[in-house]
Design a protein around this nucleic acid. Structure first.
Length: 531
DNA sequence: TTACATT
């Protein structure tokens, strides 16, 4: 099996933008495996070490404060003045038995060098071990050594697939050379895919997406060393052949970037409006204009952060949006006022939220197909295969879905970086956590008053609608206590005024049905006036 | 239909 060595030198100088934490493994029951079975390679230092690394929850790793004092396992590098090389590689470690904690994993990895940070990913709500970790060595070289020695090379006890040791997606910035490959034969292995793509360039990573049972989902990610190579592979291979057993010809497209995934979330939200209660048949223009509003917002964000990266293809055609209206991404029952289940999870920028993660199946029999933001064709085929082409860190990110739902149902991970929990499976997050964050007012200038909400909108729908504009710290739709009906107005609070302004800009006057949203800053307390 | 963090 080929090994794929990262060539991310020089890309680590800046702090990575907040990126979704990869959720490589769906929550599963821990595999009971004795730690003693962990077999370190030759030269390992198996003696127990004190826990020196910081235990961090997912989503907090980007704001990891550097330890202030030196310690035996943290070296201060002279050039950078930090604890690790500036070009240190953050590694993603996958296929870890769930009974192994940092202290158990440490000996295995320490043989390749001093560890700067090792963090097992835990479910935000349940604290459950996610079967993967992030590992940063003090030295870049250690990471490369570890990757070479371990990636796909050994299988930890109790696991059915070999350990994954590769640069974390947050490190790579490699989406411009990473391909999504769909419509593969489910028999095709990494090796096969590798051979297929080998002629077009240097492959750094090749991963077949698999379900929990290890079965291929008929698609893969292939990362080339350059964008040009990736492009040539697309030109040569996309649609070039139909694999035995595949329903249509091979799909080769650039994998979604983080930003595209963000856009996808928005698209999904658009779909959400039309489906969470079939009684609301929002006029088509709604989808389009909301999407448009979102696109504008996203374009602004992108232009600000990436010098105008957004391509025209991101503006999806109206027909696609309409289809998305039939695409259920929220399995709320037709009485969606109580945000207890069927919620979508927040993106990583929700700092204080504790909204349950969920992936929602499409259960209404419609076959709406979300459009691919990057405009590549044949996406339908990909989705027909049951796989949302996310650039997930690990092939297992959406696995739970596949297991739980098949056939005409299709899946959409609203926030693929979070724990994926299909309806019908356990939904651990306790509802009361949701209540905690409600009715929280943000600072002055961060609170919006929204009027003319659709009758069917609850707190969650309101939040979903405003999430694209920033971190929503609370959302509240007012209910008539007698009828338990929405009063069609509510509040949304952001954590900063800029988000609030962006939301006003994009959403004030936004047409839903016969009404137009009124989105204004909430009146300050002292400015109360009678109606 | 124009109500600004409720009962």
């Amino acid at each position: 099996m080929a090994r794929f060595i990262s060539r991310e030198a020089g890309r680590q100088q800046r702090c990575p933008a907040p990126a979704p934490v990869p959720a490589p493994a769906p929550s599963r029951a821990p595999v009971p495996v004795p730690c003693s079975l962990l077999a370190p390679g030759p030269g390992a230092a198996p003696s127990p070490q004190p826990l020196l690394f910081l235990l961090l929850l997912p989503y907090q790793h980007q704001v990891l404060p550097e330890p202030m004092n030196g310690s035996e396992s943290i070296s201060i590098h002279p050039e950078s003045g930090t604890m690790k090389d500036q070009d240190a590689i953050k590694l993603f470690i996958g296929q870890i038995p769930r009974n192994l904690e940092e202290k158990d994993l440490k000996p295995l990895f320490e043989q390749f060098g001093k560890i700067h940070e090792l963090t097992v990913l835990k479910d935000r709500y349940t604290g459950m071990h996610k079967g993967c970790a992030f590992l940063t060595y003090c030295a870049r070289e250690s990471a490369i050594k570890a990757q070479n020695a371990l990636h796909e090379q050994k299988t930890l006890p109790g696991m059915t697939r070999p350990i994954q040791v590769k640069p974390a997606d947050s490190e790579s910035r490699g989406e411009d050379r990473k391909l999504f490959v769909g419509m593969l034969n489910k028999q095709q292995t990494e090796e096969d895919v590798y051979r297929l793509f080998e002629p077009y360039g240097v492959i750094e990573e090749c991963t077949v997406l698999r379900g929990p049972d290890g079965n291929s989902k008929g698609c893969a990610f292939v990362k080339f060393s350059t964008h040009a190579e990736a492009q040539s592979a697309i030109s040569a291979l996309h649609g070039s052949q139909t694999m035995p057993g595949a329903s249509s010809s091979l799909v080769v497209k650039f994998a979604d970037t983080d930003k595209e995934r963000t856009i996808r979330r928005m698209q999904q939200m658009v779909g959400q409006f039309g489906i969470f209660n079939p009684a609301i048949a929002l006029p088509f223009s709604t989808y389009s204009s909301y999407a448009h509003a979102l696109m504008q917002q996203q374009a602004a964000l992108m232009a600000a952060s990436h010098g105008g990266y957004l391509t025209p293809s991101v503006a999806f055609p109206a027909t696609q949006i309409h289809q998305m209206g039939a695409l259920n991404i929220n399995s709320l029952p037709p009485t969606p006022m109580t945000p207890v289940s069927g919620l979508s999870s927040p993106p990583a920028n929700i700092t204080s939220s504790a909204v349950p993660s969920i992936v929602t199946p499409i259960v209404n029999g419609f076959t709406g197909i979300p459009h691919q933001p990057n405009g590549h064709p044949a996406v339908e085929a990909v989705y027909a295969n049951g796989l949302p082409p996310y650039s997930t860190q690990s092939p297992t990110a959406a696995d739970t879905l596949q297991q739980a739902f098949t056939g005409v149902q299709q899946y959409t991970a609203i926030y693929p970086a979070t724990t994926l929990t299909p309806i019908g499976q356990s939904l651990p997050p306790p509802p009361q956590v949701i209540q905690q964050q409600q009715q929280r007012e943000g600072p002055e200038g961060c609170n919006l008053f929204i009027y003319h909400l659709p009758q069917e909108f609850g707190d969650n729908e309101l939040m979903q609608m405003f999430l694209p504009f920033g971190t929503v710290i609370s959302s509240k739709v007012f209910m008539d206590r007698a009828t338990n009906q929405s009063k069609c107005f509510g509040f949304v609070s952001f954590d900063n005024p800029a988000s609030a302004q962006a939301a006003i800009q994009a959403m004030n006057g936004f047409q839903i049905g016969m009404k137009r949203l009124k989105v204004q800053l909430k009146r300050p307390k002292d400015a109360s006036r009678p109606y």
